[in-house]
Simulated assay, not measured.
Amino acid sequence: MTKAEFLAILEKNLDGTATEAEQKLLDDFYRHQLAQSQQKWTFTEKERIRLEVFESLNRAIDEDVRQQRRARFARIWRVAASIAVVLAVGLGLYLARFASKEIQYLTIITHRGEQKTVTLPDGSRIWLNAESSITYPEEFTALETRNVQLKGEAFFEVARDEAKPFAIRSGDLITTVLGTSFNIRDYPEDQTIAVTVATGKVKIETAGDQHQQTESQLLVPGEQGLYNKQSASIAKMQVKLEKYLAWQGGTILLEGVSLKEATDILSRRYDAEFVFKNPALETCTIDGKFRNDKLENILENIRFLMGIEYRIGEGNKVIIDGESCH
């Protein structure tokens, strides 16, 4: 008997439509040949369930019941249905356990003018800056590495777990730690990805493919790694931490940045649009420190420091004008 013939008769048997000759053929095959044939046949999950129902019936029903199967089919089918339910529930629980191992990911997004704090399943905390996103698994238990993906800027306080390194993918750069605190900035318009370390040690490396040689650097507190998106190279330098970490505490620190860079920062923080009527003003440099201040107050300070003029229009659109600083 072929597998197809066996399954066809098995289906008719369980449906109650098999003839006496087919029932006898199936019983004989089950008793004498099925075990040997099963070594060569491969069953689908549905076929295996039907076979288990049939085998359970044969174990549960004595010889007299089998001989009177047609006359008493209704009662036997209730038995078969009960067994099928038990098997289906068992299979469902098994599949549920298997499915639970599939990794589900969550994504947290901030818009312009918005910041959020996120606590990960391992207890790590992330301060997400404006216009950024972080993607992470619902749980890390089934993973060898705690992998997350960042777009934009975030400050991380990673819970230490030496058995499961924490890895952040930002563009073509991978940042790996065991437990430490650091900042990553990777906005689309930035020419570099900046990783600034506050505590512990951080490894950064390029995410090259099999045809590219990777480059890596080890960073310690007070150091910053800069990945150049154009050249795919990494540079390391000493930096003043406050300049790069102040935002996480609600402070806007502008030290020797151009007015264009300053307005880019302000546009994200306050969901504003800046327009320079005099483009020469964009390259003027500015220094200032502002903590949880209103946009109007910050613009007033810039006006006083640089002698510019500004006007806030509809939709939080800020027009910058004035004489060139050069």
Rank of each mutant, 00 (worst) to 15 (best):
A4D: 15
T141M: 05
P188Q: 02
T283E: 14
F54E: 07
Y244G: 14
A235M: 14
G315S: 06
V79E: 07
Q104C: 05
S267N: 08
D209F: 02
L218S: 07
L218Y: 08
I108C: 07
A246E: 09
D186K: 01
A21S: 12
N58M: 11
Q217W: 10
D172T: 01
E114Q: 13
T176G: 04
T263L: 06
R97G: 14
Q36Y: 01
A207Q: 02
F182W: 04
E22S: 11
Q149V: 06
D190N: 06
E282K: 14
V257K: 03
T119C: 06
T119W: 00
T175W: 03
Q36V: 13
K24D: 13
N183D: 12
E255N: 12
S124G: 08
I49F: 01
Y136R: 00
T2R: 04
R97A: 14
Y270C: 07
T176C: 07
Q224Y: 00
F166N: 02
A262I: 05
G179C: 03
R146M: 09
R31G: 10
L95M: 10
I108Y: 00
A99Y: 15
F156V: 06
G90I: 05
Q38G: 15
E138C: 03
Q238P: 12
F304Q: 13
L26C: 06
D28H: 08
R48Q: 15
D62G: 07
N58H: 11
